[in-house]
Amino acid sequence: MSKPDLSVQLCDRKLRNPVVTASGTFGYGKEYSGLVRFEQLGGITVKGVSPFPSHGNNTPRTSEVDFGMINSIGLQNPGIDKFIAHPDYLPFLRTLDTAVYVNIWGKTMEDYAEVASRLQAEREGIAGLEINISCPNIKEGGMSFGTSLELAGKVVNAVRQATDIPLITKLSPNVNNIADFARCVVDNGSDMVSLINTFPSMAIDIYTRKPKIAANFGGLSGPGIKPISIKMIYEVSQAVDVPIIGMGGIFSAADAIEFLLAGATAVAVGTAIFSDPQTPIKVIQGIADYLNDYDIKDINDIIGGVEIN
């Protein structure tokens, strides 16, 4: 039996398969270089980079909950200068045989544009920028941009003016109608969308009566959020005609296939990597097996293939 074609097209970049890592769960790549074979991955998305170095939030920053976890890391990062110059970051990422997406964020509109323009000047080895307008864990910027149609449009437009690198906008699920946000960011120049980010959540230690996270609230991820992700991806796929990178609770190939059927062109594995760093590789293998079982030659034949009742 011939191997099915797993490659997908994300703007000008052809990925060898549709599986990438989700921002914030794969560090800056180097951290997993001792455990994961990058040359087998469709791509990786690195942790959010801002114009300035950021300490992030106080500890504890994460808490396990049943079938999930809550995080409030607060986008700790070395800042764009160090990201560009230090051998552990962009210079390392350029050596990898996989597509590299750089997640960017800021406290102001100008911050987003600044990171984008700095990366425009250093674009070698960068397949795309993921604009993070959906992080629930920072006081300024982040989700406040992603839950207002006006601000979301403006920030994407500002980044678009600063770069011609392909843009992905990472959408927040914490809105009334996510399809409206997808349309808005695409109208303002986003080439793709990724969804969903995490859900604001809370866990309390009943013995100390303290929240389990220093920042009190964090973002919920894990398999429990998957059905919500699937619905939102379906809705967005009906609203816009750009590639969608689907994420939110993918732990297996079956999960990933559900995302593809709902309309995602690619999928991102996040929290599951903490459980098993080989999850993305296992997902790729499992998708290939599924296509073989159903004698499907090309993965694109299942994208958006859900048959609605």
Binding site: G24, T25, F26, G27, K30, E31, Y32, G34, L35, K47, G56, T59, P60, R61, T62, M69, N71, I73, Q76, I273, F274, P277
Partner: peptide, 16 residues
């Protein structure tokens, strides 16, 4: 001895 998620430096949970 800090709580960890990834154990390899990716998630920034266990910082001091």
């Amino acid at each position: 001895d800090m709580p960890m998620c990834c154990g390899v430096g990716a998630c920034f949970t266990c910082v001091i």
